[in-house]
Deep mutational scan, measured.
Amino acid sequence: MDVFMKGLSKAKEGVVAAAEKTKQGVAEAAGKTKEGVLYVGSKTKEGVVHGVATVAEKTKEQVTNVGGAVVTGVTAVAQKTVEGAGSIAAATGFVKKDQLGKNEEGAPQEGILEDMPVDPDNEAYEMPSEEGYQDYEPEA
């Protein structure tokens, strides 16, 4: 019985440690998101679009440190934060509304985080759909 109880105690310690790591990862992701939003706020009209992409990228980098179902929630929060940063930029006159959601080359930025393969159960990952990809044929 002692062996059984000791095993359960060790398992509990492992769960607590994993929860603490997840909590730490979420806190880091939130900190990076805040950094990115402050970065966007300090940019001029020309830099705002690039700044919004930076927020998304920093958040995406930190999301990889967070495991399990938390990833889905962090990704949703990050996307809403990026959308909010863009709205703030438009409201303050840093950028025109028609410039939001495009990178410096004018290509749409939507789907940055949505296409990231995420499995809350950590069982399997699927690649994003290939609808947006084109076949590449090298020139002879």
Rank of each mutant, 00 (worst) to 15 (best):
G84E: 08
K43W: 15
D121K: 06
V118H: 06
P120C: 08
V26N: 00
K102L: 12
M5Y: 02
L100F: 03
A78I: 15
G51I: 15
G101H: 04
A91G: 05
E28Y: 05
I88M: 08
E46S: 12
V66Q: 01
N103A: 02
V118W: 06
N65C: 13
E83S: 03
G47C: 10
L38C: 10
A69W: 15
V26I: 12
V95N: 11
K97G: 08
Q24V: 07
A89I: 09
G51K: 13
G67T: 10
V63P: 01
G106F: 10
E104L: 09
G84I: 14
H50I: 03
V71Q: 09
D98G: 13
M5R: 13
K97M: 04
V48N: 00
E104F: 14
G47A: 11
F4R: 00
V82Y: 08
N122E: 07
V118S: 09
A19Y: 15
T64V: 10
T22V: 15
T81K: 02
E131L: 07
E83M: 06
L8Y: 01
S87G: 09
Y133W: 10
V70S: 02
A19W: 12
A53M: 15
G106T: 08
L113F: 08
D121Q: 15
D115K: 05
V48D: 00
Q109P: 05
F94M: 04
G41N: 02
E28C: 11
M127I: 10
A78P: 02
A91Q: 08
V71Y: 15
G68P: 03
Y39F: 15
V70M: 08
V74K: 01
L100Y: 12
A85W: 11
Y39T: 03
E61S: 13
T72Y: 07
V70C: 04
A107S: 06
G41L: 03
E105V: 07
E123M: 14
V70G: 02
G51V: 12
T92I: 10
E46D: 14
G132C: 09
V74W: 11
L100K: 03
T72D: 12
P108Q: 11
G25F: 15
K102G: 15
E35P: 01
N65H: 12
S87H: 14
Y39G: 04
E131K: 10
T72F: 08
A90T: 06
Q62A: 11
T44K: 01
V15S: 00
Y125G: 11
D121F: 07
K21L: 10
T81L: 14
K34A: 08
V48F: 03
E130R: 04
G7H: 06
V77F: 06
V15L: 13
K10V: 12
D119E: 06
Y39W: 09
T22I: 13
V48T: 02
M116F: 01
A78D: 01
G25I: 11
E20S: 04
V40C: 10
M127F: 14
E126W: 02
K34E: 00
E139L: 07
E137N: 08
G84M: 15
K34V: 13
T81W: 05
D115H: 12
A90Q: 08
F4Y: 15
T54E: 03
P108F: 09
T54D: 01
A69G: 05
K43R: 06
T22E: 00
V63E: 01
A76K: 09
Y125S: 07
E131P: 05
E28G: 05
K34T: 02
M127V: 07
K58H: 09
V55I: 15
S9I: 10
T75E: 04
V52F: 03
G14K: 12
T59R: 01
V49M: 14
G132F: 12
Q62L: 10
V37P: 00
